[in-house]
Design a protein around this nucleic acid. Structure first.
Length: 581
RNA sequence: GCCCACGUAGCUCAGUUGGAUAGAGCAGCGGACUUCUAAUCCGCAGGUCACAGGUUCGAAUCCUGUCGUGGGUACCA
């Protein structure tokens, strides 16, 4: 069934063609949702744009279109207002029919994209040998949300966790571990590694000789030297174990199946260099093989080199990134590769995207997209740190969120058994952290604020989860199974019901807009407005105590649609719901 | 220096890709609970959309410049 937008656009095109000739049939009707109920439900803004082309006044054009507009099944009223807006009021029966079809759809009316595109989503991608910290949060959950939305749309999504298991940090760590004799011990934990890495980092910054030896270790590792290899494997196992623990408490859909570590591309690196050399793009700079990309300059104003192969023979991240592009586009045949990585790396992405294009790897029109995001700030507007000024561990953030959520639940719902309260605290606490992050425009920095994210008012996860809970409570109390409502007629009588209906029917458009823009916060805003519309409806319209069975069933169906939309929407953000809270 | 983002109410943020009188939440003031869960709802107040030009029927949104904040500026990622 065509959606409302398409139906209206069709009617408007017919009217324009009938008023001014068929050559105008493809004019964009510029259909928008009305900004206020007093302007009807939708407005068409094409009359102003046609004024020049037709040499007539916008209002006269709008009047002419309005005259030819078919009223009845879809539109019950059309009025011209302002400079030439055509305000449209929808037939409630059309809304009801649309809702009926949404109710019967297990996808809530969201069409599957056909044919599906193959999309690689590269996200989380932490550097190993360090504990996961707050800086890993955004890539992990924004990427997860994007992957879920694209998958729901029916795209062929391939998740890649491009973990840093191969770079310079391992040189530092290896050199330090071998020198201190740690390499001969058997027991290790990620916290130990964290400390050892910090020690190594300090030495690297202050001791050029150490730095030199550490760089040599990277070359050893990449060329398969046995001792380096053996220690490295121990480090990797421990790091991945820790990473998976964090993913699990975060509720992220990444498993070992999605690991595509930097080391995976090792035996492709020399081929990458050869291909770029073959394209005549490699230059020599002090022994390093570099590429120059137009438009990038260093502090001295000279063209900025990007090192594909370092002067010591080792490969840096540009080589790995280029090998990954080639693998994803040429081997996996991806149509789109999405990189969910901090905005600060924007220049790096622009550079190697351009190189990949110039080498000719994007022949089939494959699209590379850097989905950048801002920094999480503390209350002082500086990057979020612990009170002592240290790195905030991701596991600690989640623990505290659950802890804080638990306290609120103990206060608000003391009647629930403590075991259930613990489970709810986990869903609410983790959901609050994730939603708070996702609900901000990803390109901007945001200030981390416990009170705000766990607040029950405003655009927060608990507010949405509570709307869901209230609906489930209605069904429990009324002892109604949602499936039993199938086929019942939905009647939209109250303004609050009509507003809710219009809101529900926007879901497909919102999903599309998130998929196009790769901005999950658009879904958050939508869900918040939906929950808000529901709460207004809830105050105004008794459901179980409605004054007729037909009205009760109609409202129950509306409630169920809201619940399913909230659950689905939150699910696409990687956030769970509970039955009570 | 050069390049890239961002600047909306006291605070934290939206703003449907250029549409009507710029919207929420918090904080402030005033209301609504023997409840389908008040973890909610209703009302009041709060704005030179950083500033100045430009594009056009129409700009918070696009362009140019200025100011401010943050980031990037090879062989860390």
């Amino acid at each position: 069934m065509p959606d409302i937008q398409s139906i209206l656009e069709g009617l408007l095109s017919e009217a324009v063609a009938s008023a001014f000739g068929s050559e105008f049939a493809d004019a964009d009707p510029i259909l928008r949702q009305a900004t206020s109920p007093r302007f009807g439900d939708y407005q068409a803004n094409l009359a102003m744009g046609l004024a020049k082309r037709l040499g007539q006044k916008p209002r006269d054009i709008a009047d002419a279109i309005k005259e030819k507009l078919t009223l009845g099944d879809a539109i019950t009223d059309a009025e011209v207002a302002g400079p030439g807006f055509i305000n449209l009021t929808l037939n409630p029966d059309l809304l009801a029919t649309q809702l009926g079809s949404m109710f019967r759809s297990d996808r809530l009316g969201v069409a599957k994209s056909d044919p599906p595109a193959k999309v690689v989503v590269d996200y989380a991608s932490p550097n190993l040998a360090k504990e996961m910290h707050i800086g890993h949060l955004r890539s992990t959950i924004i990427g997860d949300a994007i992957a879920r939305v694209l998958e729901f749309q029916g795209q062929d999504v391939i998740r890649h966790n491009h973990i840093g298991d191969w770079g310079t940090q391992f040189g530092l760590l290896l050199e330090h571990l071998i020198e201190t004799g740690w390499a001969d011990s058997t027991d290790s934990s990620i916290s130990d590694l964290n400390v050892l890495y910090q020690q190594a980092k300090v030495r690297d910054d202050n001791d050029p000789a150490f730095a030199e030896r550490a760089r040599k270790r990277v070359v050893d590792l990449q060329s398969g030297e046995p001792q380096a290899r053996k220690i490295w494997e121990m480090l990797i196992v421990e790091s991945i174990r820790h990473m998976n623990q964090v993913f699990s408490s975060l509720g992220v859909q990444l498993t070992d199946d999605h690991l595509k570590p930097e080391s995976f591309y090792n035996d492709r690196l020399s081929g990458v260099v050869e291909a770029i050399e073959g394209a005549g793009m490699i230059r020599d700079l002090k022994g390093a093989k570099v590429v120059y990309v137009d438009g990038f300059f260093n502090k001295e104003g000279e063209p900025l080199p990007m090192a594909i192969q370092k002067s010591d023979g080792g490969f840096g991240y540009p080589a790995t990134d280029l090998a990954a592009v080639h693998y994803r586009v040429a081997d996996l045949k991806a149509d789109r590769v999405v990189y969910v990585v901090d905005s600060r790396q924007k220049d790096h992405f622009r550079q190697f995207f351009k190189v990949a294009e110039d080498v000719g790897w994007l022949k089939d029109g494959a699209e590379l997209v850097h989905v950048g995001f801002g920094t999480i700030m503390g209350a002082d507007r500086k990057p979020f740190k612990t009170r002592e000024g240290g790195t905030v561990k991701l596991a600690d953030v989640l623990d505290e969120a659950v802890d804080r959520a638990g306290k609120v639940i103990a206060e608000k719902a003391p009647e629930l058994p403590s075991e259930e309260r613990d489970a709810i605290a986990r869903v609410v606490g983790v959901g609050a952290v994730k939603y708070f992050d996702l609900s901000n425009d990803r390109i901007k920095d945001y200030v981390f604020d416990w009170d705000r994210m766990l607040a029950l008012e405003g655009n927060t996860a608990p507010y949405l989860q509570n709307a869901y809970v209230r609906i489930r409570s209605i069904f429990r109390k009324g002892e109604v199974e949602p499936s039993s409502l199938s086929g019942r007629e939905i009647k939209l009588e109250q303004a609050a019901e009509r507003a809710l209906a219009l809101q529900l029917l926007q879901l497909p458009r919102i999903i599309q807009s998130v998929a196009d823009s790769l901005e999950p916060h658009r879904l958050c805003t939508y869900l918040y407005e939906l929950a808000s519309s529901f709460h207004k409806f809830y105050e105004k319209c008794p459901v179980l105590a409605a004054d007729s069975d037909a009205r009760r069933d109609s409202r129950l169906a509306l409630c169920d649609l809201v619940a399913r939309t909230l659950k689905q929407g939150l699910g696409l953000l990687g956030i769970d719901t509970v039955e009570r809270m």
